[in-house]
Amino acid sequence: MVTCYMKFAIDPYKLNEFEIYAKRWMSIIKRMGGEHHGFFMPYEGGSNNIAYSLFTFPSLGIYEEYRNKLRTDEESQANLAYARETRCLISYERSFMRPVFE
């Protein structure tokens, strides 16, 4: 099992647009065999331009298959185009972790 941890730099004036983008990824990842653990958006008292996301795939190989499928998946490509058009996403970092559950 592998969990992808993502840190996003986002436009703080386009939180609504980023949230639309985020919610779309949740259904895409689920459809492609992953489990999404949510996006975590800026809130009072912290950075107003950083968001986080966690999602898990059964293995790194299945995650890599998911990444390959994204290139031709219409919904995924439309969501990436939405982020470019709205400019809600500035950059992101991706790390992989091994989760420990009870």
Rank of each mutant, 00 (worst) to 15 (best):
R67Q: 15
I28D: 14
F96K: 00
I62D: 08
S91A: 15
F55R: 01
V100F: 03
Y43S: 15
R94C: 09
P99V: 07
M97A: 13
F40L: 12
N68K: 15
N79G: 05
R94H: 10
F40Y: 15
M1Y: 04
E85P: 08
R24M: 02
F8W: 14
F40T: 10
I90V: 15
K30T: 15
Y66T: 06
S91P: 13
A83P: 13
F55I: 02
Y13P: 00
I28Y: 13
A22K: 12
C88T: 12
H37I: 11
N49D: 05
V100H: 02
E75L: 06
L54A: 05
F8R: 03
I90A: 10
E65Y: 11
H37K: 11
R84E: 15
H37G: 06
A78R: 15
F101V: 11
A9E: 04
Y21T: 01
K7Q: 13
F101C: 09
A9N: 09
Y82C: 02
S59N: 11
I50D: 00
G45M: 11
Y92K: 12
T56R: 01
M6C: 14
F18L: 02
D11N: 14
E93V: 02
R98Y: 00
K69I: 01
M97K: 08
P12E: 04
L70A: 13
M1W: 01
L15T: 04
M6G: 09
G34C: 09
Y5T: 10
Y82S: 00
M97G: 07
D11T: 06
L15M: 05
K69S: 14
M41K: 07
E17T: 06
N68E: 14
L80P: 04
Y66I: 06
N16S: 10
E102N: 06
N48G: 14
Y66S: 06
T56I: 07
R84F: 12
I90N: 12
P99D: 05
L54P: 04
T86M: 08
G45T: 12
T56S: 09
N49Q: 04
W25N: 08
P58Y: 00
C4I: 03
M32D: 10
R71V: 05
A78C: 08
G61P: 11
K14M: 11
G34Y: 05
Q77H: 05
D73I: 00
T86W: 10
